[in-house]
Design a protein around this nucleic acid. Structure first.
Lengths: 109, 109
DNA sequence: CGTGTAAGGAATTCTGACACG
DNA sequence: CGTGTAAGGAATTCTGACACG
C-alpha cells in the first residue's frame, strides 16, 4: 500500500526541460493542459512540474495532432482508454480478493 | 550501442526540486558539486540539471556527512568504487570478446 | 482551433563574498 | 570544513490578451 511512485511518474520536470525533451513550444504544452490532456503539478510558487510519463504522453498527443485529430477527440480517446484500464484493474482486484478469501491474506513483497 | 539513458540517469531536475526531494539546502547541494562529489549538467542559461541517480547520490552523501566523514574522504570512497566498477566492466567485456571471437558476433537484443 | 507573440510581473537560479568556527 | 545569509543580476515561468484563420 502507498508505494512511492517510480521515477517515471514523479512530477519533477519544469516546462523548459519538457520543451527541450519534446520539441513542443511552451505555448503548445500549456494549451494541451488547458484542453485537459495533461495534468502537471505545481510548485509552491506556481511553476508546472511534469513527469517522464507526461513527456511521453505529450509526444503521443503531438503525433495525434499531426494526424489531424482535434484536442477534444484526443481527450475522448484518452478517457476511453482510461476507462478500459480501470475495468481491468477492477477485474484484477476481484480475482485477488477471491484468492485472499480462499487462501488468506498474503502480502506480495 | 548509444542506448539512450533511462529515466534514472537523465539530467532534467532543477535544484529547487532536488532541494525538496532530498531535504538538503541549495547551498549544500552546490557545495558538494564544488567538492567534486556530484556533476549536474547545465541548461543553456546556466541552470543546474540533476538526475534521479544524482538525487540518490546526494542522500548517500548527506548520510556520510552526518556520520562525520569529510567531503574529501567521501570523494576518495567514490573514486575507489568507481574504479572497482570499471574493472568489473573491463572483465565483463573481455569475456564477451572471447565469446564473440569463438562463436561470432551476436547482438544481444 | 491551435499556435505565435509582446507585456509585465513574480518565482527561480546564479555567482562571489562575508560570517562562524 | 561545512553551511547560512544578504546582494544583485540573469534566466525561467506565469497569466491574460491580441492576432491569424
Amino acid at each position: 500500500m502507498g508505494k512511492d511512485l517510480s521515477y517515471k511518474d514523479k512530477k519533477v520536470i519544469t516546462i523548459g526541460v519538457v520543451r527541450d525533451l519534446t520539441g513542443l513550444s511552451e505555448r503548445q504544452i500549456r494549451y494541451y493542459e488547458e484542453r485537459k490532456l495533461i495534468f502537471p503539478e505545481r510548485s509552491p510558487g506556481g511553476s508546472r512540474k511534469y513527469s517522464f510519463a507526461d513527456v511521453e504522453l505529450l509526444m503521443d498527443i503531438a503525433n495525434k495532432i499531426e494526424d489531424g485529430l482535434q484536442t477534444h477527440e484526443i481527450r475522448k480517446e484518452m478517457l476511453r482508454e482510461e476507462k478500459k484500464q480501470n475495468q481491468e484493474d477492477v477485474r484484477r482486484k476481484m480475482i485477488q480478493g477471491q484468492l485472499n478469501a480462499q487462501f488468506g491474506i498474503r502480502k506480495r513483497q
